[in-house]
Design a binder for these strands. Structure first.
Lengths: 243, 243
DNA sequence: ACCTGAACACCGTTCAAGT
DNA sequence: ACCTGAACACCGTTCAAGT
């Protein structure tokens, strides 16, 4: 505590500029490392050395690496709820846009998915994202249990789709090397024998030299349209829907 | 140690003699440890000591811990494709049943989700599961790109829904202790202030002392029904649909 | 209050050496 | 062929001690 003074306001703020560290700086560095090198590249020691500090000092701001990951998760979730949220579009476009921005964020930070599973997710940005979705759906007429279920349906599709996409990309990255083309082709032949439909789909994809980006977007939009159609059919009323 | 390759499945297993270890025994032990203690509890040294062997010896059968996780993943995927697959039900019940068994498996082995994201998934059971889904949808009349997209839609929903469920459970487990009831209530009050809709939904859930199992099942079925409705609407023809 | 330095109890992986 | 034992280069976390 600094020397006492007649009033807090007569004394300048604590010399906080001397602090080399802060929770925000640590989280920002963690996100940068995760983006650049994935979950494997992240260690407390790495973050500390990037910040010119000892590993132990991080624990002054963060109780555990797990907690740091929770903070990093919520940090990037902040990218989803943009200013486009309050648009006056119909509920379909509004919710679809939210889902697309959510997906885009997960593709920018794929490490999020590897930590989402068993981890609680109650940060301010996660809550704001949920509120944004609930607002759209509530205006569209959903309430009570259907409101929860409708939002969950769209959110779950986003994370499921991006999970599948990153898994597909990982497989392509590893078999993409020229050294493995022969092996991969042989493996594909075997697959086609035992699994005719799958083999046909895989060779169709290989033959068309498919653009993975576009194909993933197409599948994402397909299921999203199915879901939104389903929600539309179950939409009870149009309270607040001025259109 | 075997030569590295892009995926375990592109390389035959090492020939066998009488030996204390085998790939199957190692994978079985890994799955058991993962089920009992989660991904954190798994280490090469732990598996080795469980099998009465040194850590280094595992590398005779497996090139890397990552590859072992690929094998463990496919191992539990084998639980999904049961004998019920070839039932003569309509395509809706058949596909829905497959999705439900998939979900049940993921709930039994929640560690799968934390490894699904960046990992290739080309094991025999993953392929068999895909073929089963393609068979159902193909008989229902889907073909080409819609066939892929329809299967992806259902699969993605399964993994997204279980991801959300495990995350919810993790949050409940941590705030469930009696010491945190006060803190949690205060936090909920704050949430309700800034996020009225979310706050309302959360206190509705808390007030009803909601059964998480049932609620998760309900949401899962809700979105699944939306998807199946959407697929039905997009179903081009009924080739092979004798009904 | 904030950070260092060293320590503790772990990791995955490699590899010569044994059998 | 299969496994040991020891080593290497890491981890997350704690904590007395400094400033």
């Amino acid at each position: 505590m600094p020397t006492p003074s007649p009033s807090v306001w007569l004394r300048p703020e604590r010399p906080s500029r001397d602090r080399r560290l802060s929770r925000a700086r640590i989280v920002a560095r963690a996100v940068a490392v995760l983006d650049a090198e994935g979950a494997r590249g992240l260690s407390m020691r790495r973050i500390a050395s990037d910040l010119g500090v000892t590993a132990g000092s991080l624990y002054w701001y963060v109780t555990t690496k797990d907690e740091l990951l929770e903070l990093a998760l919520d940090d990037v979730l902040g990218e989803v709820v943009g200013d486009g949220t309050a648009s006056a579009d119909g509920w379909r476009d509004a919710l679809g846009g939210l889902a697309r921005r959510h997906r885009a964020m997960l593709l920018r930070h794929p490490w999020v998915l590897s930590g989402l599973a068993g981890r609680p997710n109650l940060g301010p940005n996660a809550l704001a994202l949920a509120e944004a979705g609930l607002t759209i759906l509530s205006r569209a007429g959903f309430a009570d249990g259907d409101l929860d279920a409708a939002l969950a349906a769209v959110n779950d599709h986003v994370v499921g789709a991006v999970t599948a996409e990153t898994s597909w990309r990982a497989a392509l990255d590893r078999t993409g090397g020229a050294e493995w083309r022969e092996q991969a082709a042989e493996h594909l032949r075997r697959i086609a024998e035992e699994h005719p439909l799958l083999g046909a789909r895989m060779s169709a994809a290989a033959g068309a030299e498919i653009d993975v980006d576009r194909e993933c977007e197409r599948r994402f939009a397909f299921a999203l349209d199915c879901l939104l159609d389903g929600l539309e059919a179950r939409r009870p009323s149009a309270r607040g829907d001025v259109e």
